[in-house]
Amino acid sequence: MPLGLRRGTVTAVVEALDCLVRLEVDGIPCVAYPRLTGEVEVGDEVLVNEQARQLELGSGGFDILYANLTRGIGLEAEEGAHVMALPYTPGQVALRRAEEDGELPAALGGVPVVLCTLHSQVVPVCAALAGLRVAYVQVAGGALPVSLSDAVRVLKERGLVGVAVAVAPCLDGDVDCVTSAAAFAWAVREGYDAVVCAVGPGIAGTGSALGHGALALADAANVAGALGG
């Protein structure tokens, strides 16, 4: 199925955060990721992806800003970035990866890695770990942009999560990694006491035993065990 894009005009900015903007395009709810598509203001001419909303999916109650034709053309890549996220897709973008910033430990040294098969489990798990320095690691299986999660944002504000790490193809975290192994090792190198790993909100499901986004946590479990977590 091809991309479901439409052209429209921003008619309202409902909430503007550093990493997420909730807006309306021609009166229809939409979200934008300003670190990826640039700033957005009322009156901007934009392209939005409306496919999930048109299909009436559980995660499709709003459109996604695909490109800002008014102020999002010619944006420069992140300084020093050369590894592509979403490579060879229409949305590919260069991001700097944590693996590029020095050596990572070869083992986790017993640091616990807690796996959440639903994004809604992240809040109670992090609450139970209060007092520890916790790194949140997001893997594929639900929403890819870490910045979509209000839960993670509130956990960071309350000091229950110290950093949010995106593992490719996830993106737009405080830190971006190519692999979960690197994400776990990075958290250990940076002195975190525990890692909470989950899929993002809006988990993918097909109604079959094997076609469920939470199975990504099986891979994460294997990685954590192999590295001594």
Rank of each mutant, 00 (worst) to 15 (best):
C116R: 11
L215Q: 09
P201V: 07
L17C: 01
A106T: 14
G213E: 10
I28R: 05
A128D: 09
V223K: 00
V25R: 13
A143W: 14
L23G: 04
E79P: 01
A209F: 03
P34T: 06
E56H: 11
V161N: 09
L104S: 12
E24I: 00
G205L: 11
K156H: 05
D44F: 11
L210F: 12
L65I: 06
E79V: 13
V13W: 01
L129W: 00
V40W: 03
R53M: 13
A187M: 05
A98I: 13
L36R: 14
G102Y: 02
G43E: 00
V195Y: 02
A16S: 14
L75G: 03
N222D: 13
E39G: 15
G141I: 03
G60R: 10
N68S: 08
G80K: 15
V152I: 15
T117L: 12
P112C: 01
L144Y: 10
D150Q: 15
F184G: 10
R53W: 04
Q51W: 11
G228P: 13
G200M: 06
A106E: 15
V146M: 09
C116H: 04
A128I: 04
L210G: 05
T117A: 14
L215H: 15
G141K: 06
G225S: 07
V111A: 09
A221E: 03
